[in-house]
Simulated scan of single mutants.
Amino acid sequence: MDETFFAERIASLRNQKNVSAREMSLAIGQNASYINRIENHRALPSMQCFFYICEYLGVTPSEFFDTSNPNPEKISRILQELSSCNEKQLNTILLVIENFKKN
């Protein structure tokens, strides 16, 4: 992993959240250009800032590094919602997902 990975992953997750680099920088308590500097390969976050970034993006550090999951925030939200469904609802949702995958 290098700064290219951080730059691309942060940009991707930030864009999914539909926020600007400036807005995100300020929201995590940094100067307005902080995320822009990371995305332009001019800086890497400290460990503490990395945790703030993950929290802001709604992902765990593990999900941040899991490039096989391009939408970790949405998957987490879906799993949270599914945990409150009963068996019949889960079966229905599973059928819907299976039908989506067939098409």
Rank of each mutant, 00 (worst) to 15 (best):
I38K: 01
Y52C: 03
E73K: 15
A32Y: 11
R42N: 11
F6Q: 02
L13A: 01
A7F: 09
I53G: 01
E39I: 02
N18P: 00
R9N: 07
E73M: 12
N15H: 12
Q30L: 12
G58S: 05
G58D: 05
S68M: 08
N69I: 12
S20I: 03
S62Q: 13
K17F: 09
R77I: 07
N69D: 14
K88C: 04
A43V: 03
E87K: 12
A27S: 15
S62A: 14
R14C: 05
A32K: 15
A7R: 11
C85K: 15
T67H: 08
S76H: 10
T67S: 11
L57W: 02
T67L: 11
S76Y: 04
Q48I: 08
E63Y: 04
P72M: 02
A7Y: 09
E23L: 12
E55G: 04
S46G: 04
E39W: 01
L79Y: 09
S83M: 10
F64V: 00
N69G: 05
Q30D: 04
S25N: 08
K74A: 13
S46L: 04
L57A: 06
I10W: 02
I10F: 01
N18M: 12
S68L: 10
Q30V: 06
Y52I: 03
M47F: 11
E87N: 12
P72V: 01
L13I: 03
S46N: 03
I75P: 01
R77V: 06
F50D: 03
F64T: 01
F65R: 05
I75M: 15
T67K: 11
C49G: 00
Q16T: 06
N36K: 08
V19D: 06
S12V: 03
M47D: 08
M24S: 03
N69A: 10
I53Y: 00
S62Y: 07
